[in-house]
Each structure stands twice: as C-alpha cells, then as structure tokens.
Amino acid sequence: MILLDVDMPRINGFELLARLKADPVMRRVPVVMLSTSQDERDIDRTYDLGANAYVTKPVDLPQFLALVAELLKFWLKLAALPTRPEA
C-alpha cells in the first residue's frame, strides 16, 4: 500500500499517482490519497487517476496514527490483493 498526500514537495500527489498507475509493475499496488481537502474536484481527480481510496486526514497526530493503523489493517489484513504484478 502506498499513502500519498496531495501536497508534497517536488511532485504533487496527483502527478505521482498518475506515474504509479501508468507503470505496469506499480499500477496494482493499492494507493490511498490523503489530504486535508474535502474538495470534490480533488476527490474526483484522485479516483479518475486510479487511486483506490481518498481519505481526509485528521490534523491531530494521535487521530492520524489511528487512521493509518486502520488503513494498514484493511489493506494488509482484510483486502484480497493480487499475488503478483501484471506484466
């Protein structure tokens, strides 16, 4: 699982997401976009680019860590994932 923030230095989350989903090896890796934004345009763009989820992140550190724990639990324990990258 890859956690991306919309606002990152050097390359924004949308650009990196597009690159990941264009790569034959990386496109099957689950990507969760995190942002403090609840802008519908950001959410739509995230899904249009192939993200698996868009999550509004809390600004409080303990709540953020709890959110990450829940995401890890879902993607690494509950979700059925592909066994190998698509060629």
Rank of each mutant, 00 (worst) to 15 (best):
L16S: 02
L67D: 04
K77S: 09
L17Y: 08
P62G: 13
V68S: 04
P82K: 07
D44K: 11
V32N: 03
S37N: 02
T56D: 00
P85V: 12
Q63F: 06
G50F: 15
V59K: 14
P58E: 03
A66R: 08
F74Q: 01
Y54V: 15
T83F: 07
I2C: 12
M1C: 00
F64W: 06
N12L: 13
M26D: 00
R45K: 15
D7V: 13
P82H: 08
E40D: 12
E40I: 04
L72T: 12
N12A: 15
A51Q: 05
P30F: 11
F64L: 10
P24V: 02
E40F: 03
R28T: 12
P85E: 05
L16N: 01
R41F: 03
A66D: 13
E70K: 11
Q38H: 10
I2H: 03
M8V: 12
A51M: 03
Y47H: 09
E40M: 02
P62W: 09
T83C: 02
L34F: 06
P24C: 02
V29H: 02
Q63W: 10
Q38N: 07
G13E: 02
L65P: 00
W75Y: 15
R41D: 11
K77A: 08
I11Q: 10
M1V: 14
Y54G: 01
M1Y: 03
T46G: 04
V68W: 10
R28C: 07
L65S: 05
K77P: 00
I2E: 02
V59D: 09
D42K: 10
V32H: 01
D42M: 02
N12K: 05
I11Y: 15
S37Q: 09
R10G: 05
L78F: 06
A22K: 04
R84M: 09
P30V: 10
D5A: 11
A66I: 15
P85R: 10
P30Y: 14
D42H: 14
V29E: 03
V29L: 05
E40K: 14
F14R: 05
D23S: 07
L71R: 08
L3H: 10
S35P: 03
R19Y: 11
A79K: 10
E40R: 13
K21W: 05
L20V: 11
I43K: 08
R19N: 06
L71A: 15
D5R: 15
P58T: 14
G13W: 06
L17M: 12
K57S: 03
A80R: 15
E40H: 03
I43L: 01
N12I: 15
D5Q: 06
A66K: 07
I11C: 09
E70G: 14
D44P: 00
P62K: 08
N52H: 09
D44H: 05
D39M: 04
T46D: 01
E86T: 14
I2P: 01
A53W: 04
R28Q: 05
A80H: 10
R27I: 11
D60E: 05
M8T: 13
E70S: 06
D39N: 15
L81F: 06
K73G: 07
L81Y: 14
